[in-house]
């Protein structure tokens, strides 16, 4: 049973490409692989533990004030993540700038709490949260991989295109600077959705 909860969000129920949750804050960090992976890890942890905590508290919170309780729990977790990043990965934290804070308003976290954690036991909620974070991370990583490879010719800042290929060194290759621009993240995601829906036809939207 846990296996099913864990595997569903990775592909068929992917939070970004199928449920359209959590796109807001994440895409601006996909220019390079490294910040994207840091972001994915932070979101995974926050989603998992926010789901766990809210699931433990689910029977004690009055329904009317649950949104603000959720926000406080999420904000507290994000502050922890932010302080840890500032202490141990200062460069990555500078690169992510305001987007660490925006994890609070990431609809993925709120969405999973509302849709799953408030109606289920703590352990499945934790797994659901972590798996959704990972599904989110996979899309982020794919987008960042494409953008960094084509846009800068590097992966994790290590050059992968042979040096002699570049026009400057008498070769034929030039990095496509278009992929560094923010709008290309959206177009790459659109293409990822296209590929995914061509593979599993049941996800295609009805007209």
């Amino acid at each position: 049973m846990f296996k099913k909860i864990f595997l569903a969000p990775l592909f068929k129920g992917n939070p970004i490409t199928v449920l359209t949750l959590g796109i807001c804050s994440a895409l601006a960090v996909t220019v390079k692989l490294e910040p994207a992976m840091v972001m994915a890890a932070s979101v995974t942890l926050v989603t998992g533990f926010a789901s766990l905590i809210m699931s433990i508290l689910r029977n004690t919170i009055p329904n009317r004030i649950r949104i603000i309780v959720q926000l406080v729990v999420i904000a507290a977790l994000v502050i922890v993540v932010d302080q840890v990043l500032k202490a141990y990965a200062y460069d990555a934290s500078k690169q992510l700038s305001i987007f660490v804070g925006l994890i609070i308003t990431n609809c993925l976290i709120m969405g999973r709490i509302e849709a799953y954690a408030l109606g289920n036991k703590p352990i499945p909620s934790l797994i659901d949260g972590l798996a959704n974070g990972l599904g989110f991370g996979i899309v982020l990583t794919v987008v960042a991989f494409v953008r960094e490879l084509i846009g800068s010719g590097t992966l994790f800042d290590i050059p992968v295109i042979p040096h002699s290929w570049y026009v400057a060194n008498g070769g034929f290759y030039e990095n496509n600077g278009l992929f560094i621009l923010p709008p290309m993240a959206l177009i790459v995601i659109g293409l990822v959705i296209w590929v995914q829906r061509s593979i599993s036809k049941e996800l295609i939207e009805k007209q």
Binding site: T20, P183, L186, L191, W194, R197, I204, E205
Partner: peptide, 15 residues
């Protein structure tokens, strides 16, 4: 068909 709805909205927003 696979681009319908969400996919094409993303691409248009990008453009």
């Amino acid at each position: 068909a696979p681009l319908r709805g969400l996919g094409i909205s993303f691409i248009i927003t990008g453009l």
